[in-house]
């Protein structure tokens, strides 16, 4: 390993701190991966049920971040500064508002095209993505919006060495919240009536209607679920990076899409696994190679997966049973 590696663009002398450095990147990568994973679930669920890639999903994530920011500022203005309460209110507000965006997106843009060729729906999705970007740009302005750190401080490990590994409270919050959401989500999909209907629609839309499942409503709820998970990712992104603008949905959306493809599009555990892997790859690439090429690394993965394992890590190949 090279003695001098770059981290965040500046060289860090990590000779002798190989383990510490590795641990720190692992923590950073996991946090980032959780955010990608939450967005990726929206891609994979929508693909599973109606077979289209919702390219406007990244923008839903961006809107989630904006709603979070606005709610934080509103709460600040109202004088609610007790952090746990503020974060909880923001979480609920962003999930509710962003779900409405997700629902409307499906209702207005995709449902009328349900029976059209897939290309029509795909182009509409790209159109909606551009529309939502410009909509937020017009409403909120193009400048970067900052948010002062809400949760600061953290656990520090290996204090005896010069390279202190930090696990910030924010990272703990992100990891725990994601795990909680995943558990709830898994329960909903596997154990509730809505979850069963969702899986039934995923396997055979026509047959689901024939046993009396309201397919339109199930598809709407799928968009709502995906949007609310993406909005949580938006909140985490906002708190993690502290700055957002109307364009963040593009890159994050495409990376989450890469994660969904890597995990196997249509597979829910695959989306989470893919998200974690993309987060880790990005963190380690930035740490040991060059930060400038971290996006190249992520997208190289997309290309390689599409060439060598198009069904992804956990995806099932479509085998026609005879």
């Amino acid at each position: 390993m090279p003695a001098n590696v770059t981290r965040g663009g500046s060289p860090v002398n990590c000779k002798g701190f190989v383990m510490e450095y590795f641990l720190q990147q692992l923590i950073n990568g996991l946090t980032l991966g959780m955010i990608y994973g939450l967005i990726a679930i929206g891609y994979t669920m929508v693909y599973g049920i109606i077979g289209m890639i919702n390219f406007a999903h990244g923008e839903i994530f961006m809107i989630g971040a904006f709603v979070s920011l606005i709610t934080f500022l509103l709460l600040g203005a109202l004088g609610i500064t007790w952090i746990p309460l503020a974060v909880l209110v923001v979480l609920i507000a962003t999930m509710l508002f962003t779900s409405v965006y997700g629902w409307t997106l499906e209702r207005v843009a995709y449902r009328p095209l349900r029976d059209s060729p897939r290309l029509a729906a795909l182009i509409t999705a790209i159109g909606m993505s551009i529309f939502l970007q410009n909509y937020v740009q017009l409403l909120q302005g193009a400048r970067i919006k900052p948010l002062p750190p809400v949760i600061s401080g953290g656990f520090r490990f290996m204090k005896e060495s010069d390279f202190v590994v930090t696990l910030s409270y924010l990272q703990v919050f992100i990891i725990l919240l994601t795990i909680t959401l995943m558990l709830v989500f898994t329960y909903v999909i596997n154990r509730t009536s809505f979850g069963r209907a969702q899986r039934a629609c995923q396997q055979d839309l026509g047959m689901a209607a024939l046993i009396g499942i309201n397919v339109d409503r199930t598809i709407s709820l799928t968009f709502v679920t995906g949007a609310s998970l993406a909005s949580v990712a938006g909140l985490m992104f906002l708190m993690n990076y502290g700055v957002i603008d109307f364009y963040i949905g593009f890159l994050a959306g495409i990376k989450a899409f890469t994660a969904a493809v890597l995990g196997g599009i249509g597979s829910l555990p695959g989306a989470m696994l893919g998200g974690l892997l993309i987060g880790l790859i990005e963190a380690f690439w930035s740490a040991y190679f060059t930060v400038e090429y971290k996006d190249v690394a992520a997208f190289a993965i997309l290309v390689l997966v599409l060439i060598f394992r198009p069904t992804g890590l956990l995806g099932k190949p479509d085998i026609e049973k005879v």
Partner: peptide, 22 residues
Amino acid sequence: IRLFPAMSVLENLIVAQHNALM
């Protein structure tokens, strides 16, 4: 035949009662 192939036998029968459950 059009079953839900990735659901168990029991689940196929329960999902058919979706409306009563909802």
